[in-house]
Amino acid sequence: KKRTSIEVSVKGALESHFLKCPKPSAQEITSLADSLQLEKEVVRVWFCNRRQKEKR
């Protein structure tokens, strides 16, 4: 599967949402994915990776 490159504006939106809620529910992920026109899986993986980055 190809890597999904996420645009800067979209990254900003994800980042601000992450600061409010680092662990969104499935429903939040779905609505966020719909509003940003991304697949749910892409958003879910982005949050997983972002939480891991926070640990480092």
Rank of each mutant, 00 (worst) to 15 (best):
L36H: 04
V10A: 12
V42I: 08
K53C: 13
V10L: 09
W46S: 03
S9N: 08
S31G: 12
F18N: 02
K23L: 08
I29N: 00
E39I: 00
P22F: 00
K53N: 04
K23M: 10
T4V: 10
L32G: 02
R44Y: 05
E41Q: 07
S5P: 13
K11S: 08
E41G: 05
S16K: 15
R50Q: 08
S31H: 11
R56F: 02
R51E: 08
A33P: 02
S35K: 15
Q52C: 09
L19S: 12
R50L: 00
V42S: 08
E28H: 01
I29E: 03
R44F: 04
W46L: 01
I6A: 11
C48K: 15
H17Q: 06
E41L: 01
F47D: 02
L38Q: 04
K11G: 09
R50W: 01
E7Y: 05
V43P: 01
V10M: 09
R3M: 13
K20C: 05
R3K: 14
V42A: 10
S16T: 12
I29T: 03
V45E: 11
S16V: 07
K20W: 03
R3I: 14
C48N: 08
K23N: 15
T4P: 10
T30G: 10
E41Y: 04
Q27V: 11
E54F: 03
T30M: 10
W46Y: 03
S31N: 13
S35M: 10
V45M: 10
K20A: 06
V10Q: 09
C21D: 11
H17E: 09
R51W: 10
L19E: 12
R3V: 14
S5A: 12
L19K: 08
Q27N: 13
Q37F: 08
S25V: 03
N49S: 09
Q37W: 05
I29H: 02
A26V: 11
H17S: 14
G12K: 11
R56G: 13
G12T: 15
S25W: 02
N49I: 07
Q52S: 09
K53F: 10
A33T: 02
R44V: 05
E15L: 03
C21Q: 12
T30A: 11
R50A: 05
Q37G: 13
S9K: 15
E7V: 07
N49H: 10
F47C: 01
S16I: 05
Q52R: 10
R3W: 06
G12I: 15
A13N: 07
C21T: 09
F18T: 00
K53Y: 04
C21L: 03
C48A: 10
C48Y: 14
K11Y: 07
C48D: 11
S35Y: 10
E28N: 04
K55S: 13
K2L: 07
R56Y: 05
L36I: 03
V10H: 10
E28W: 04
E39F: 00
H17K: 05
G12Y: 11
R56E: 12
E15F: 01
N49W: 08
L36F: 06
H17R: 04
C48T: 10
C21N: 08
K55N: 11
I6P: 07
V10T: 14
T4R: 05
K11P: 06
F47Q: 00
K55F: 08
V10G: 06
K23Y: 06
R3C: 15
C48P: 00
Q37A: 11
S9D: 15
R51C: 04
D34V: 11
K2G: 10
A33V: 03
S16M: 11
D34L: 15
S16D: 08
D34I: 15
F18L: 02
S16R: 11
T4G: 08
G12R: 11
S25G: 08
P24L: 01
D34G: 10
K40D: 05
L38C: 05
L14N: 03
Q52T: 13
I29R: 01
K20N: 07
F47N: 00
K53S: 15
E28R: 04
T4H: 05
L32E: 01
N49T: 07
L14S: 01
L19W: 06
K1T: 07
V8N: 15
A26C: 07
L38R: 02
I29A: 00
F18Y: 10
Q27K: 12
F47K: 00
V10C: 06
H17T: 10
L19F: 04
L14V: 03
K23V: 11
T30C: 09
E54D: 08
V43K: 01
N49K: 11
K55I: 12
K40A: 12
R51D: 05
I6C: 08
V8S: 15
S16G: 07
K20D: 04
E41C: 04
L14C: 02
W46F: 05
E39Y: 03
G12V: 15
L38Y: 02
P22W: 03
R50G: 03
D34N: 15
